[in-house]
Design a protein around this nucleic acid. Structure first.
Lengths: 353, 353
DNA sequence: TTGTACGCGTTATCAT
DNA sequence: ATGATAACGCGTACAA
């Protein structure tokens, strides 16, 4: 129909919108609308375009769309680990919230490293994301600056900003902004209180990774013990290595030799707790009779192993889901009811403590 | 210098290459090269441009780059699960191989669903990826067609194409093409042979997920038992549910009531094996004395629990890494030495069988 | 080694 | 409701 609708094959080899439009006998703009906003186009044309799309096997080009519209429909998610079920659950929640809406999720694995986080952020910012989901509140100065200058909406996950949760904030450079999670500090406090109430006297803390959340749980542990007047720094074991079952087994050995009178151990996560318990079994130490052990996160194994592990169940899927919803609302220009969503946690009292 | 170097702010709000070029007093092309191919530009200019980039906080726009160059530097990876450590390990390998080279990885979680796989592929194809990494060899007809019409280089992971591994291929619509992995069938055969050699007579198979890999392991199991003349279909339990520890516990109960004379169980993966063992402990069944149990994949817990789990260790990190390298070579236009890389597997004989 | 003109595929804008 | 045209920001293909 139109006089000069080019027909040459594109460099990309892909069918373009112009070709679809030509095939359907409409302008490119109509074709574009028929695809992106079907309700703004007459049913007849919508059908013609739809058929042309099908016949030609047209696939929209996201790069071109992003360039022209200045909105990428990309969300960047930065998590410290992918081997940790905590974060894959968070991711599942994010995907469920965002993918139906056509968002593309760029997953960055920072491996608990500030440098890595900065590098990933730099890379991912090149994709002009519409928003960012971050794990935790504290980040390096460089990252904080990058985020600020990007002017993008950001939601922090797994902890709560401001920390006006009865207990003052733990430390350092916590960023303000939107957050979805629960109070790590309070969770640490709750677990320790539980052990205290059970009558344990010499309660140790076993931590790894030195990450923000571990530190806050430790803070809660200290607070509870100090209140009870039984705080003893010698009962704390903290290393920087990534936390694994093997490390839990090793750290148990260390604690036993340094403070043999310890009668309960609060492990900063379930991996460590599992390792410690397995190691107790090998050494013939009865759990919890001789030594109580509890963890954090409630991974699947913890509920099933023998003894089952007393731990804190965390709402990670929901954290991801709600954080994504919140971000989406802000991107749409809405003013969310709350910018700080506390999803709470649940103490799972089981056999090991 | 130049007469009409525009200075207006962009819609995106972001600094553009043109602004960097203006600031550095060079042409946009020089600026572009100074950034992408520093060695092709004089050191003096390189420095000037670098400074301008820093001062302005320039962030390259990937969409524009992709559009102009027809190469996106995006790789799509489709895995059936993110909660399964097998695939997060594969992903780690892929990231390590690809990210240093500036590739962006689009991770799709198919959740073991053909429909989901097709949907994800459709979405991700819009990003004009340079290549695709897939899990497994068999896919739905729709997916196979999508892949074919995309004409993109594809590497399949975790299994081997063609299956000329001594044993003829198991079944159905296996795609040809490049693959990196090991023979799932042979691994299943090896494990079963191990149990046979240990003297077990009534060896059961416990499977879930009904995915390709499970089916191939089952095939290997059958082959070994048939060769030994002790194959009995009643010893097979196969369900479609996602495989979890809880399911392993449940299936153990089923097997025990349907075939109480069973003296060993080959679980299609470690989750099932762990669940089965935990359940044995609760029922007071001694493993392996009364019932031997083995798994597949060698997850961390398997080595540490008591009894430790006999299983097949799989080279998942390397699968991801090598598959990514292979894909990258093909994208660069190289002709790889091998398009079918067998990374093997290792039987880990431990306490449970 | 450096610069110029143009095109990549799409959407926003503004007409009709 | 539909269409023509101009960006969007960058790299390719040349020319200088």
């Amino acid at each position: 129909m139109s006089k000069a609708q080019t027909q040459r094959t594109r460099a990309s080899g892909r069918v373009t919108l112009a070709e679809v439009a030509a095939r359907a006998g409409v302008g490119t703009m109509t074709a574009s609308r028929a695809i992106s906003q079907p309700e703004m186009v007459s049913p007849a044309l919508r059908a013609r375009v739809g058929q042309a799309v099908a016949e030609l096997g047209y696939v929209p080009n996201r790069a071109a769309r992003a360039l022209a519209s200045a909105r990428s429909k990309v969300i960047v998610v930065l998590v410290p680990s992918l081997s940790n079920a905590v974060f894959t659950d968070v991711l599942a929640g994010i995907q469920d919230a965002l993918e139906p809406d056509g968002y593309q999720i760029l997953i960055g694995n920072t491996r608990y490293s500030d440098a890595e986080e900065e590098k990933l952020l730099n890379t991912y910012l090149q994709s002009s994301p519409d928003g960012i989901l971050l794990s935790g509140l504290t980040h390096s100065r460089q990252v904080t600056e990058l985020l600020a200058s990007s002017k993008l909406p950001i939601v922090s996950m797994m902890d709560l900003a401001g920390a006006p949760d009865g207990q003052p904030a733990a430390s350092s450079t916590t960023t303000a902004g939107m957050s979805v999670g629960f109070s790590q500090l309070q969770a640490g406090y709750t677990m320790t209180r539980y052990l205290l109430d059970k009558g344990y006297k010499r309660i140790g803390f076993m931590g790894a990774q030195r990450d923000e959340r571990t530190l806050k749980r430790l803070e809660g542990y200290r607070r509870a013990l100090q209140e009870a007047g039984s705080y003893d720094p010698r009962l704390e074991t903290m290393v920087a290595d990534p936390s694994t079952i093997a490390l839990g087994a090793e750290l148990l050995g260390r604690m036993l030799s340094s403070t043999p009178d310890c009668d309960a151990i609060f492990c900063c996560n379930d991996d460590l707790a599992q390792g410690a318990i397995f190691q107790c079994q090998r050494r013939g130490i009865a759990v919890p009779r001789q030594l109580a052990i509890c963890g954090f996160n409630d991974l699947p194994v913890s509920a099933w192993m023998n003894p089952s592990v007393t731990t804190i169940a965390t709402p990670r899927y929901r954290v991801g889901f709600e954080a994504a919803q919140l971000l989406r609302a802000v991107i749409r220009g809405e003013t969310p009811a709350a910018t700080r969503i506390d999803l709470g946690f649940t103490l799972m009292a089981r056999e090991s403590a």
